[in-house]
Design a protein around this nucleic acid. Structure first.
Lengths: 172, 172
DNA sequence: CAAGATTGACAAATCAATCTTG
DNA sequence: CAAGATTGATTTGTCAATCTTG
């Protein structure tokens, strides 16, 4: 079976040991690659920590954490979806699982039945209380304590800028 | 059904409208949140662009792109897995799908049959050639052109630092 | 028997219907 | 009938078990 290069590359192949240079400057390319690696591995690292220490996924953790910060431990599904970076559909599946584990339960809003509230149970509260310190220890260990104050601040700034752009593009 | 807060929160609930302050300083917290949002939405944005414009996932794109940069368009599965941030198992599934679409094919290494080479086909080469410009246009649009040269450079630096830490923790 | 690779079972996330309520 | 929410089918990724080669 022939491949694309027997014919297509030949003389043309000499100068382009790094073809990407055509698209980004070497400096831009390096930063972009580092960013891609970060957005790939940081979430995996967090997920692994949460799974290992607390048997929770990132979304599950965020959902419980957000609920635990509310006075009444409850929030509408649609709002919770926003807070957890999940689609409503995704969150619904997530809450179903958490419900089976007895960490939250659902209740239609008594005032307007179109809304559903997710509500943290006592068990859920205990679980998230145990999980949070380990989560932040890990956050420190892989990011916060690795960067200088200033590096972290600038990283945050840059992230916010990019996010504003992504939000805009997505029509938010 | 009772929830955790009828009893557990009461007087205690007054001061902690933002309980996370206990774990990180407000500045650290803001940067961390921005970073989490970025690592969640940037990959989604890239995936959407690739899916829409080229019918490729990020891993598929990277696999084809890496192969297209090689003179002979081929690479061992294990090396390709590293280059694409995928596990060997994951990559194997990915290559199976790409193979079904006629974009790559497999061939055991003739010298040492324990290795398998993934090889780009002519079709695969054409597909990735079409995909790359749109990919970089999108990269510019959401990151490169949104930040100053310096911001991008520092973002890259910070990402590299964090990645070194994550690599170390994972034993790499 | 160790390293590379594949496979199948399972878990998680996305998408396109569908259902429910006001 | 529009907004909120759920559901089921499909896809994608992960994990553990297995297979193959030198």
């Amino acid at each position: 079976m022939p491949n694309a290069f027997s014919e297509m590359r030949g003389p043309a192949a000499k100068g382009d040991s790094n073809e990407l240079v055509k698209w980004l400057s070497p400096e831009q390319e390096a930063s972009w690659q580092a960013l891609i690696r970060l957005t790939t591995w940081l979430p995996r690292s967090i997920d692994q920590q949460l799974q290992r220490d607390s048997n929770l996924s990132m979304v599950e953790f965020r959902a419980l954490a957000v609920l635990s910060h509310r006075q009444d431990g409850k929030m509408r599904m649609s709002s919770l979806a926003q807070m957890t970076n999940a689609s409503l559909s995704h969150l619904s599946h997530v809450v179903t699982r958490l419900e089976k584990r007895g960490l939250v339960y659902r209740q239609p809003d008594p005032v307007d039945g179109r809304f559903t509230n997710a509500i943290l149970t006592t068990d859920g509260f205990h679980e998230i209380e145990k999980a949070v310190p380990m989560y932040f220890a890990h956050a420190r260990s892989i990011v916060i304590d690795v960067l200088t104050r200033e590096q972290l601040r600038l990283l945050g700034r840059a992230a916010e800028r990019v996010m504003r752009r992504i939000d805009t593009l997505a029509g938010r």
